[in-house]
Design a protein around this nucleic acid. Structure first.
Lengths: 337, 337
DNA sequence: GTGAAAGCGCTAACAC
DNA sequence: GTGTTAGCGCTTTCAC
């Protein structure tokens, strides 16, 4: 049997309260007894049972991170930073992948409530926002990651999507592109990036053709498919803004499969700056999210909310950054006006 | 306050024992009372507190997965399958990234023991195997993933690394390559892949030059560096076997940076078949691990061990598969003998 | 078919 | 500085 606090107390000839105090460094304990107790703990290889302490303290020191898919590099990269920060703060992390599926969202959220997670981080791509609203009613701390929800007042940590879209399109326009298409996801963040697209085109007196905006789900294949559609149009765009790097990678593949050279024949810009964007040929020009800063911030915000539930809601927008690599250039000469 | 089993019992005018029985579908409960209780559970939105039940049952229904780095696509992909399988079996997963760091390994293992994880999956790349041996002594169920440890008898699920190396090198040799280099990791699985390399070269009467085997840690940069070294040699290899796709991607980048064309000037083959290997140009020829099968199997094995601790140890080797894509071809003519 | 009660391993209030 | 004790919310005998 694993040793319990009773075993330690008996061996050290003190009470369990004393043992508890030396473990948690609470109360005041004389130096000799502390040493004595610690020695016994060592000798018995005693590990406090935190499920018992969680039951008494009514807090598990664990956080739930709900993402669409941990095998998607964007999410695995940011999860890693969140994990590090959480551990640094003494918390463990449950990570669950929901596949954009409302069933799974519901199941995981119930499960993690049962597991008494102290707080929840809901990443972008979460479908059923009603589920999250329930948290609010039940006073369960939640913070949204890169998911700007306007209807309810949640704590949010996100990148400034509009600004990011602006950066991307502005880069393309300043290179001289006049016919720019966009491949976006069907999520809110993509919508904001799209707004920047429309606004900027408008500002430059460029017409927005609805044929030039494709909405899809993030996957390399979908990026490929979307790009193929775009490239088969008569009035083919000279530049494509993919709302994330996964889609951009698909776009790159599609262009290549049609014998088109990027960026000579067509420019492609992504969003996210994940590892993928440096392994393509050409390397991807993209808009970087400061995911480490975002990860740190979101854990801080969530912890604050756990400790002080009635604090004002907080929305932190991080500034994205344009990373120019190889996949964007001036449009082909014969198409320039 | 969250409702407890007492609240449900009171509302339903039954005892907490009865409520417990309907929740867990144990004992025998009459249809009417079950319905009555369920209705109250519904109405109160009652969620059983599993930390309390974990305390009584002495089992948390959770597994620990210890990997080097969740942001490494190989691990995130396999983690995803393990997560799915675990959830299918009614278990939650703690995922921890240790960065090949013994300090972190120790910290996480202690933490997860405190959290009373029912079993541990230790992935390849784990440094301090002594830590794992302690599990054995303490009768804590462990299964190794893709880490074949010879000294102790652990349950192991792995790919047949030797066979994988064989497949890769054999492919290269049958294309006509005579001067083959290898970039391997400093882990056991890589060593096995290396054995295949040496054996196969020997079988074909090809000398093994130690200059042609580089050992490093998995990262794109290290792959790049290793490849650069290889390419600067006078007697430059015509083909390189990278012991995983991450290294192979680095190798591809290095070749490209030197103006070499893959596979025309030099062939590159990887190992793992992760998503990265389809986004490179050229797409990577590689050896695929059946990671879904491995994930399913490892969860099964671990659960079996949790339920029946004294079962014989089991080592399952999965058969890898050669995936020929674009990065391998015959060696340049002028170099062929 | 249902309930009373003991106990899982711990924390925290309180007494000494 | 240290110990006693009452829970935390649940499962599981064992009566009835």
């Amino acid at each position: 049997m694993k040793p319990t606090i009773y075993d330690v107390a008996k061996e050290a000839k003190v009470s369990i309260a004393t043992v508890s105090k030396v473990i948690n460094k609470t109360g005041s304990i004389s130096d000799p007894t502390r040493k004595k107790v610690n020695k016994v703990i060592q000798r018995l290889n005693y590990k406090p049972n935190v499920v018992a302490s969680a039951l008494t303290k009514k807090q598990t020191d664990s956080l739930a991170l709900i993402i669409p898919d941990i095998s998607n590099p964007f999410f695995s990269e940011i999860s890693r930073f969140i994990e590090d920060k959480a551990h640094e703060m003494g918390l463990t992390l449950f990570i669950c992948s929901t596949d954009y599926n409302e069933e799974k969202e519901k199941r995981y959220i119930e499960l993690l409530q049962s597991k008494q997670a102290d707080g929840f981080i809901i990443a972008s791509g979460f479908q059923n926002i009603h589920l999250v609203e329930e948290f609010h009613q039940n006073n369960i701390p939640v913070t949204l990651l890169a998911q700007d929800n306007l209807t309810e007042s949640f704590n949010v940590v996100s990148v400034d999507d509009y600004r990011g879209g602006f950066l991307a399109i502005n880069h393309l326009i300043s290179l001289g592109h006049q016919n720019i298409a966009v491949i976006a996801e069907k999520v809110h963040s993509s919508t904001l990036r799209l707004h920047a697209y429309r606004d900027l085109l408008g500002m430059h007196g460029m017409p927005v053709s609805e044929e030039n905006v494709i909405r899809t789900t993030a996957s390399i294949q979908n990026g490929e498919k979307a790009m193929l559609g775009l490239l088969q149009k008569e009035d083919r765009p000279t530049a494509v803004f993919a709302a994330n790097d996964i889609l951009a990678v698909g776009a790159l593949k599609a262009a290549r499969s049609l014998g088109l050279e990027v960026p000579k024949d067509i420019s492609v810009i992504g969003f996210d700056n994940m590892i993928l964007s440096t392994t393509t040929v050409p390397e991807l020009t993209t808009v970087a999210q400061p995911i480490k800063d975002m990860a740190d911030k979101i854990v801080d915000v969530l912890i604050r909310q756990i400790k002080m539930p009635h604090l004002a809601t907080e929305r932190t927008l991080f500034v994205p950054e344009l990373i120019v690599r190889e996949s964007t250039a001036q449009p082909p000469k014969h198409l320039k006006n």
